[in-house]
């Protein structure tokens, strides 16, 4: 017990009742109310719409309808498949760009800017951009024709050429959304203190070993964030796919769009929404578990 505390006990406490400072709560109130109405409420509403029958009973009929839908199995498979192909490519490419920028070569701010351009481009915009390349009257056919390889244009984006459809979607998504991973990784790299690299230099570590044992472990929090954000966005993917492939390559968010926009079936669309939410959250938790920063590794720094 300090001297001050002893003295306090001896003196009579002339304490005024201090009122709680309400100001911070007042300032937070608009955000809380807004998110309650436009975020929490529709989230609950999604469950109500997808689980409640018109009579008010709990029903699985909408989910059964969703499962039985011709496009469902394909949509589920495609969403997972595309995510599984696209994200590793994005992470590797983003890491290469981030490491290039981190070398601070002359002109790296411009390189960063160029690589960041797709940040401002929507999935719809990216889909349209790349369709100018892959479509029948697109630049790919023109280039092939100019090289004398073909005489007549090839229809790449058709159900007869699924590999081309997938390829076009993957190219478009890697082109568009690598930027966000890259920017998060560059920001993460900047947080790593230079001492670590200097220490590694003192011990004569090779570039490869520096990357493997210094950079990547320290970049783990940034990688984790990038992966979570990218995966969630990947399950929301729909415009790129629809532009490239229409409904030939169905995806989950696209089916929600068609169920609502084309068929006006709110309940089944909500069932898709609930499915996407559940998948996103499961995967987020999986990533958090997979990439959890181990305490002892942090302490060792």
């Amino acid at each position: 017990m300090t001297v001050a505390e002893q003295r306090l006990e001896q003196t009579l406490p002339p304490v005024r009742r201090q009122a709680v400072d309400w100001l911070p709560y007042v300032l937070l109130l608009p955000t809380v109310v807004f998110l309650a109405v436009f975020f929490v409420y529709p989230m609950l509403q999604a469950f109500v719409l997808s689980f409640r029958s018109p009579e008010g009973a709990i029903t699985l009929r909408y989910f059964q309808a969703m499962l039985k839908d011709t496009y469902f199995a394909g949509a589920l498979r495609n969403s997972f498949l595309l995510t599984a192909i696209i994200i590793p490519l994005q992470v590797v490419l983003a890491l290469v760009i981030a490491l290039l920028i981190n070398t601070r070569f002359q002109g790296h701010p411009w390189f960063l800017f160029i690589c960041a351009i797709p940040l401002g481009i929507s999935d719809l915009g990216a889909g349209l951009i790349w369709s100018s390349f892959f479509t029948e009257r697109g630049y790919l056919n023109l280039i092939l024709q100019n090289l004398g390889l073909i005489n007549e244009p090839i229809t790449f984006l058709s159900f007869e050429r699924p590999a081309w459809l997938y390829g076009a979607i993957v190219a478009t998504e890697v082109w568009r959304a690598t930027a966000i991973v890259m920017v998060i990784l560059v920001a993460g790299l900047q947080l790593i203190p230079k001492d670590y690299f200097e220490t590694a230099d003192v011990f004569g570590a090779s570039s490869w070993r520096k990357l493997r044992y210094v950079t990547l472990p320290l970049l783990r929090p940034a990688l984790q964030t990038a992966l979570i954000i990218r995966t969630i966005l990947a399950f929301q993917l729909f415009a790129t796919v629809i532009v490239m492939a229409g409904r030939i390559v169905p995806v989950l968010a696209g089916e929600a769009y068609f169920q609502y926009g084309l068929l006006r079936n709110v309940n089944i669309a909500s069932a898709y929404a609930v499915l996407i939410m559940t998948l996103s959250m499961t995967i987020t938790i999986f990533y958090l578990w997979l990439l959890r920063t181990k305490e002892e590794e942090l302490g060792r720094g």
Partner: peptide, 23 residues
């Protein structure tokens, strides 16, 4: 509050447009 904001950021929020359409 901070965690709530973080959760909101990491949520596929565009999907909420479907139930919101009804409201």
């Amino acid at each position: 509050f901070r965690l709530g904001i973080l959760g909101t950021k990491m949520f596929p929020a565009t999907i909420l447009a479907v139930p919101l359409a009804v409201s």
